[in-house]
Structure formats: C-alpha cells, structure tokens
C-alpha cells in the first residue's frame, strides 16, 4: 500500500493525471479528482475549461490519453500505459510530469475481483509486439470502458431520453435489457422512483409530452434506476427555462441528502455552494483550485478563481 497518501482511503473514485486532447486541442492537462462515498463534488469553470470532459471521462464517454481512473472495487484503468500499448504514444511524447507520475506506478492494491486492469495489464500488452499486442490492448480498452461505465449513471444537459419510448420504458430499459432485472421488479422500482420526483402519473407519456423540467427529472430517474454507485450530472439545468431549474435542483438536493455520491458539472453556483462538499474550479484543462464551497466562494486563493466568480456572480459590473 505505497500509494495510500496519494489515493486516500474512503474514496469511491480516484482520478490522477487525466489528460485528453482533441486533435491539437489539449483539453485536459493532468486533472486529479477524489470522490469520497456519499459526497457531492461540483465542477465549475467557464465553457471550454474541460469540466465536461472530466465528467465524460469518468464513465467512458471519453477516453483519456493518459492518467489513472480507479473505482473502489474496480475497475482501475491506467490510460497512459494503454496509449503506449495502442501505439498512440511513445514514451517521450507528452511525457508525464510529476502530476501524472502516480498514474505510471503499478497498481499494487487493486482488489482481486478487479475485472479490467489485472487480466491483461496494459504494460504487458505493450510488451507484446506488433498488431497482436495492439489488438489485445484494443480489446482491453473496450472492456475497461464498459467496466468504468457500469459503476456510474449520467444525467445529460439535453436529457437524451429515448423519444420512441414512454417514460416508464425509458426508466426500465437499462434494468430489464442490460441488468436482467425481472420486468415486474423493474416496473415497481421505476414507479416508486417516478413517484418520488412527482411524475407517477406521467409513466405512460412520451418524452415530448413533458416539460423540460419533467424530462430532466425522468432523466434523473432513469439514472437512479440503474442503481449506480456514482451519479454524474452534466450541466443538468443549463438547457432549461429559468423557471424550471428549481424543480430539478430540488430533486438533486434531495438525492445528495439521501447520501448519493454525485459529481456535478454546473453553472448553478448557488447549488454548488449549498449542496457540494467539494468544489473544483477548472480553467484551461487544469484544476486551478479545490476546496470546501465556503472557502472557494468566499475566500478563493487564486486570482483566476476570483475573476471567474466575479464574472458569474456580478455580470453587470
């Protein structure tokens, strides 16, 4: 356990040195993230700061070029070694600095039931020569992506409900089709969840028959129905009319109080301040500042944080 100070115990999710480029655009330049069980982490920052890319990396919608993602109980994925195995990066190219050094260290305390990292370590795949090695690495990459995805559920900015399915069908789709939950169980659970967000009577409606706030609440219920360990929210209220924002934030606040672990990308600073236990301010692909909301919002240490908060909180000054 040589990395205990680096990856504190009690974390549900640990991210170290996450890097991501889109073409020449270096979107993430080494992001670290610690999510403890039951806490709400808010990611704030301007558009293009990389906060959404961080979130999408956590469930495999984006694949980082380098860095380490580790869930308590697995999987643990070392993206840097894998990029090498896939032939995407040579050792020298974009060499990790001290921020990402942790990612390059072998994972020595990964749990035994870890489905991804232990089967075929990416380093071993890299050692294999030629396309066979790359093929093994590619297959491993697929497994890793799915294993990451299975730990969380996401609520999107534009709800992304399935338009050809009713509210109820949207909610039970994952449980019945993927998780093999018996239909009656899934329906009972879905009805209970829908009732909790005040949408019991909408179970047979199609998404287009709902208001934006209702659609987003169904989106949240669809995520909850998967019974994930981690809930991810990608600017869940940004696309809503202002008068509908409250109903969605209220639901999210209740979930936080119930002890759900959440990572929330948001522009709702009021929400972050009230509900989050940890706030990260991102700019230019790095975490500029992190801490308790009280500290970030009332006494930021960094000038860039101060400027951002000023712009958002006092847009007319």
């Amino acid at each position: 356990m040589s990395h205990t100070e680096d990856r504190p115990t009690g974390n549900l999710l640990t991210a170290r040195g996450i890097e991501k480029s889109f073409g020449t655009n270096h979107v993430l330049r080494g992001v670290d993230l610690d999510v403890r069980r039951g806490e709400v982490v808010a990611l704030i920052g301007a558009s293009g700061s990389g906060k959404t890319t961080v979130l999408r990396s956590l469930n495999g919608l984006e694949t980082p070029d380098a860095g380490l993602l580790e869930f308590d109980g697995g999987p643990a994925v070392d993206f840097g070694a894998r990029s090498v195995a896939l032939g995407r990066r040579t050792g020298a190219d974009g060499a990790p600095d001290e921020e990402t050094a942790a990612a390059d260290a072998p994972i020595d305390d990964a749990p035994a039931d870890d489905v991804s990292a232990d089967d075929v370590p990416a380093e071993e795949a890299a050692a294999r020569s030629g396309w066979l090695g790359r093929r093994a690495a590619r297959r491993q990459a697929k497994t890793d992506r799915a294993a990451l995805r299975d730990r969380s559920a996401m609520v999107f900015q534009h709800h992304n409900l399935f338009p050809h399915r009713t509210v109820l069908e949207n909610v039970i789709e994952g449980p019945t089709q993927v998780q093999r939950v018996p239909r009656e169980t899934a329906v009972a659970r879905a009805e209970e969840l829908l009732a909790r967000v005040g949408l019991a009577e909408k179970r047979d409606a199609y998404p287009h028959e709902l208001s934006g706030g209702q659609q987003q609440r169904v989106g949240i219920v669809r995520a909850l129905a998967l019974q994930p360990d981690l809930l991810l929210f990608d600017e869940p209220t940004s696309a809503l009319d202002p008068e509908l924002v409250g109903e969605v934030l209220t639901v999210m606040k209740e979930l936080a109080e119930e002890g759900w672990t959440m990572v929330v990308v948001t522009h709702e600073l009021q929400f972050a301040r009230q509900v989050a236990s940890q706030v990260l301010f991102l700019d230019g692909g790095v975490v500029v500042e992190r801490g308790a909301p009280a500290q970030i919002f009332t006494n930021p240490a960094e000038e860039r944080t101060r400027q951002f908060l000023n712009r958002v909180l006092h847009p007319l000054d």
């Binding site: 469930n59 495999g60 919608l61 995805r149 299975d150 559920a153 996401m154 999107f156 992304n160 409900l161 399935f162 789709e173 994952g174 089709q177 993927v178 998780q179 669809r222 995520a223 998967l226």
Partner: peptide, 9 residues
Amino acid sequence: WEAAWTVGM
C-alpha cells in the same frame, strides 16, 4: 448513442 451507452447497452 451516449444515453444508450450510459444505461449499459
């Protein structure tokens, strides 16, 4: 596609 991925498909 992303929503389908997220529900595990």
